[in-house]
Design a protein around this nucleic acid. Structure first.
Lengths: 366, 366
DNA sequence: TTGAAAGCGCTAACAC
DNA sequence: GTGTTAGCGCTTTCAA
């Protein structure tokens, strides 16, 4: 191992007490209740501790005794490191870290990669509660978390009756976006969405798969889009919907390509995240499609990069989500039924959406 | 609190054993050594556990017994949430998370804000080791970490004789940058650097303060710049060096303004980070200074935003630093003396550096 | 102020 | 394959 200040680990609170000829209580008090013993004695205790190389009360033993770990666990289904690539996730983390910091609590990132079915990490986590960030409803790690006898709050997904939740109203958010496009005159569209389940399907999505998606957020957004466009006579079954497992701009590029190959006549490409949309913009450029004249592209999240690109999107308060999740978890207020926090979103009409090409605007009805 | 699957917490391994009429060992084995008991018995144990709402062995008690927490602590001196704002720090985090994930270890973010002198969080952290990321040499949290009897590795700073370290060769890195500028013909320069101590000094920096800076990295970079420019006859005492406590683009803007107000004749502005440099570019634009014709601006780190802006900078492998730090800590290999990992850097000559204005190029000698 | 007693919940030898 | 015995290191009534 890397370094050990004190090669041996001999000194314990008990041995210190013995050395000093006082009780363990006194030593414990020297650290935890300075006012419970004379300054002089306390000084002697601390002094002797230093001499013996006693590093202070062992945190784990203390946790066992006090039944408090002083930390919050965070469960992400993505590879832990992926989270740091996604600006929305980083924003969430920042908010959560903020809340933890305010409360003097640590934040434990639980190593729960999606491929590794190793739920043990969840069992091993010494925490006073969990925050679960956007996982599928059939995630085994989530199941393991829910079995632990500690408070839990879920952010975004899944939606669980009995568990605290913070998120947004995905249906109304994406419906607003759909209306924006419908008003502009789009009715021949394509969709690029994030993974719908734990299985990889980098391909078109059947209606059945849309309906049974294990990611509530994606499922809701697709359903809401279907409803909105059905309202203006679009047969959703004809709309190309492409899914990508990895949440990267590269995915956005290839997915956009797949949609455009299938139906070059679409006038708008709706992406369920900014990252995907940014990739789609790249692909559009590659094909010589002008945005928005030849193709409208939209995202979701409102990350800084999207803002810079002038992307039409739905902004959601990612930092606030993290902070709210942390506060909910750390807030000791007694409460009966599970609490549900729904944060506001905002439609950002950027420079990537506009009226469709004249030709396509001619609408012959369904 | 948020939610409790099992309101009471009655079931323990012992009570389960009692209920089943078997020994605690057997129950323990059912969870930890499935091969140590008959499948039938194991099934019965797990089944009864479910019935009693026993959530499995308590992680803290297990940690106490096994002397393993299954997690690595991360100490950052910045407000924890700040880390998520700095792309270089996020890259480091990603690398570290990667290494932890590979090893199945959790990553505990220790809530150690610089203002709060509350070292308790370090004492409370149930971890098997610490990674310390870029803190001043007089940081009390660092001192607390070093007192804990667990392995520690420091990234970047401070440089400690007896502790494992991963970092870069700051001196040679910035010297390469200085040479680049010197070759272009710059000799009237200004510098913007990050905080040099735990005290806030958003102002010019005396030579004394430069010399005694508590942030080794900044100190080294300034010293190396001084040496390099002294080599071509520049009197370092005349070079305006401005410090900023907060590491933001806004800081870069105001610092650049401060330098340019002091000496409008400088032809190059060296910033010790990309974030600061990006701000400096903004300020230059505000003043109508063309970059690089009127002013050369350089950064340090090589973050993606810098790349996009075409910034002249020094790229350092931030993700690799994180990964290396994690590996060093998690690598159980016996080793005698502390290990030092120095990663390579690369000078990126971007579009923000060029030859100085003709007028300034006339050099009258020292 | 200080001390004695009683575990917190679990695992690891080692014997049966 | 299963049980017995000993703690891991600490905090916390409660009494002195």
């Amino acid at each position: 191992m890397a370094r050990s200040t004190n090669a041996r680990r001999p000194a314990t609170l008990a041995s210190l007490a013995a050395e000093l000829g006082v009780s363990r209580t006194t030593v414990s008090n020297a650290y935890n209740r300075p006012d419970q013993l004379s300054p002089e004695l306390r000084r002697r205790v601390l002094e002797t501790a230093r001499r013996l190389g006693y590093p202070g009360p062992d945190p784990v033993a203390r946790s066992l005794r006090t039944r408090k770990a002083g930390a919050v666990g965070l469960l992400l289904t993505e590879n832990l490191s992926y989270a740091f690539r996604d600006p929305a996730a980083v924003g969430f983390l920042e908010g959560l870290a903020l809340a933890c910091e305010d409360a003097g609590q640590g934040l434990l990132l639980v190593p729960a990669s999606p491929e590794r079915e190793d739920v043990a990490a969840v069992h091993r986590a010494g925490v006073d509660g969990f925050v679960v960030y956007s996982v599928p409803d059939d995630d085994p790690h989530l199941a393991a978390v829910l079995e632990r006898p500690v408070p839990t709050v879920v952010c975004d997904q899944p939606e669980l009756e009995t568990v605290d939740r913070v998120g947004i109203d995905d249906r109304s958010a994406i419906t607003g976006l759909a209306r924006h496009l419908i008003e502009l005159g789009h009715h021949r569209i394509g969709v690029v969405c994030m993974r719908l389940g734990r299985d990889r399907n980098d391909d078109f999505v059947t209606l059945e798969r849309q309906r049974s998606a294990h990611f509530h957020v994606q499922r809701t957004r697709l359903a809401a889009l279907a409803d909105a466009f059905a309202g203006v006579g679009v047969d959703w079954a004809t709309v190309p919907v492409v899914e990508r497992f990895d949440h990267t701009t590269a995915s956005g590029e290839s997915a956009a390509a797949q949609v455009l190959d299938r139906d070059p006549e679409i006038t708008a490409l709706i992406c369920t995240s900014d990252i995907l949309a940014l990739g789609a913009l790249t692909e559009a450029g590659r094909r010589g499609l002008r945005v928005p004249q030849d193709l409208t592209v939209t995202g979701f999240d409102g990350i800084p990069e999207a803002d810079r690109a002038g992307l039409t999107t739905v902004r959601q308060p990612v930092l606030e989500k993290g902070r709210a999740a942390g506060r909910l978890l750390l807030d000791n207020a007694e409460h009966g039924r599970p609490r549900k926090v729904t944060l506001d979103t905002e439609l950002i009409a950027g420079r990537t959406s506009g009226a469709p090409r004249a030709a396509a605007q001619i609408w012959y009805g369904p």
